[in-house]
Design a protein around this nucleic acid. Sequence first.
DNA 1: AATGCGGGGTG
DNA 2: CACCCAGCATT
Length: 390
Amino acid sequence: MSKPAATEAVHLPPAEIRRLQTRLLAWYRQHHRQLPWRESRDFYPVWVSEVMLQQTQVQTVVPYFLRFMKAFPTLEDLAGADPQDLLRNWAGLGYYSRARNLQKAARIVLREQGGEFPRSHREALRLPGVGPYTAAAILSIAFDQPLLALDGNVVRVLSRLFRLEGDPARSPVQEMLAAAGRQLLPAHRPGDFNQALMELGATVCLPRNPRCLLCPWSSHCEALKAGVQERLPEKGKRPDTHLSRQAAAVIRHRGRFLIRRRSDSRLLQDMWEFPGGEFSRSDLAGSLVKYLESELRLNVRLRDRLTVVKHAVTNRRITLTVYEARLNPPLPPTLSIPGARWIWLSQAGRYPLTAAASRIVQALTAEHLHRRGRPESGRRQVGLAAPLKP
DNA sequence: AATGCGGGGTG
DNA sequence: CACCCAGCATT
């Protein structure tokens, strides 16, 4: 059985290119999703959406995008925004340096480019948070520039269409994919073609169980012909995940709770959380008490275990045990702690909380309602800190 | 080229 | 569980 050599460039005759373009674009016109950032071709909303969509699924981004555009409707609003307010609007979406870089870049565009987005790929790449993919996406969608937006979806679609083997993270395969994709890209509305390619990858040419019966390119797909569509693209090796045991304290004092801002931390910088940490000792509760004493100079006694939050951060799988705590007498002369605040539950929504902290607030809110004699009603979300979901 | 960076959706 | 997601910055 013959297959294309990994080093052999894909070459397409013009008639084939036209057939592929026509079929994909016809499919896209029929089946594309209505998404809020497709209502305008102004670079600002396109830019915001593309940054939010970095490593984040469409479905997740939609409500964040709507809220963000309401909070910061223009480039000027974003450039002038209070950083904590910005972070608060990003909280829960992850990869928070995206938000910081977006604001930095907005200020550069506003101050140094007179409010005009760069019109070349090379210039766009100078903006923090704008890489090869994002630059191509914005310039093709907002400015009709014929640049291929090579994202994870497009890698998958093209790997299968041309049956390109080898790890697409590596440079030779990457180059072949890009070269093949550029041949397909039409001069007219390249942004629509890019979006069609990504839409196909997101809704039809799925990582597992691709819906080849619905695919406008099924009769052209080399991987399908060979029956290897599920095996492509090849995946490189992944870093092993490791476990992390963490504990946090919900310290109640006169109806309020202590939250702390993460400073000097690469991870979740400037986000707020309930104080705690990662502990290796088997005595999780004891470790937490000692930690609070040495780190915050707070002498507490632990009460109930409130909840256990399981979540994953990059390659760590975290089990976070949450304890309720009270201060032991005698109280210190001042409860003021640098970088921390005592807040009411109802004020939680004013802070950019980590996802784990949000889950804890949710649990506290449910418990609070329960204590006031209103039984929990399903998954009802209450209060400002309710997670952002459609 | 390899690693770190969040969090959630999905089979 | 593992894998993936409209990637980028840093080393």
